[in-house]
Design a binder for these strands. Structure first.
Length: 242
DNA sequence: GCCAACGTTGGC
DNA sequence: GCCAACGTTGGC
């Protein structure tokens, strides 16, 4: 089941705000409600999902409205080891995704506005790293693809769910999820410790990973990578571990 | 299991 | 709107 719970917020909200990708900025967003609001939990989980397959596409969207950057690469965290939260085991590792029908699941349980907004920016076909967190060996285990764009996370209305959010109303849902499909394992597990070494190094020499969100926004469970960051990280699978 | 970092809550 | 207290994330 799921993961982090947390919840509570205040009331209402406005809604969907936009997706946004902000990035460099930080903040997040949401305008939701009144001011405060968000909760915080991130993470995810997955499960089969029913529908799907969607394909929506974006249309021209792309045009970058000046100002906001558009990302096509992501890193999503999930816990591969059992941990009971509100009576439910939140374990969901890459092997669990792989075991689902069509190797596809919904990334529910995200209860952080910024992470949610990043999910709303995701388009079908985008690639994401499956990151194992809060476990013996944290790091990137594999790759997955976005196969369905953001839609209402039903677990926010489920009292039995670890991420139930009593403040969210059916007619104005706060939380969204995407469907992801297992793509492949990385050729080798890329440990956080190794990424950290590159990050340190790059902070000194201006390398690609100097601003990697994994280190600059450590608690964000859904985070964007630039194409350069994504390619660099992926290239590590063909190199010797440092 | 500890605990630093940081996001959220809620009084004022 | 500020900010102290509190709760969560997630590495170690």
């Amino acid at each position: 089941q799921r993961m982090p719970p947390k919840k509570r917020t205040r009331g209402t909200t406005a809604e969907h705000e936009e997706p946004a990708a902000k990035l460099a900025k930080k903040d997040d967003d949401e305008k939701d409600s009144s001011g405060k609001g968000a909760k915080g939990a991130p993470r995810r989980r997955g499960k089969p999902e029913a529908g799907n397959s969607g394909m929506q596409e974006d249309k021209g969207a792309a045009a970058a409205p000046a100002g906001k950057e558009v990302y096509c690469h992501w890193l999503m965290k999930s816990e591969p080891e059992s941990r009971i939260e509100k009576g439910v085991d939140v374990k969901f590792g890459i092997e669990d995704l792989k075991a689902l029908p069509k190797q596809t699941g919904c990334w529910d349980g995200v209860r952080n506005y910024q992470a949610r907004n990043f999910m709303k920016d995701m388009k079908v076909g985008h690639e994401a790293f499956f990151y194992h967190s809060n476990c013996k060996e944290p790091g990137i285990a594999g790759l997955m693809k976005i196969v369905k764009e953001a839609y209402v996370d039903h677990t926010q209305f489920d009292k039995k769910d670890a991420h139930y959010d009593p403040s969210s109303k059916k007619d104005n849902p706060k939380w969204y999820m995407v469907d992801v499909q297992f793509d492949r394992m990385t050729k080798r597990f890329i440990p956080l410790s190794e990424l950290k070494k590159y990050h340190q190094q790059h902070k000194s020499n201006g390398g690609v990973l100097k601003g990697l969100a994994l280190f600059t926004r450590a608690r964000l469970s859904v985070q964007p990578l630039s194409k350069e960051e994504f390619d660099f990280v992926l290239s590590l699978e063909d190199k010797e571990p440092i």
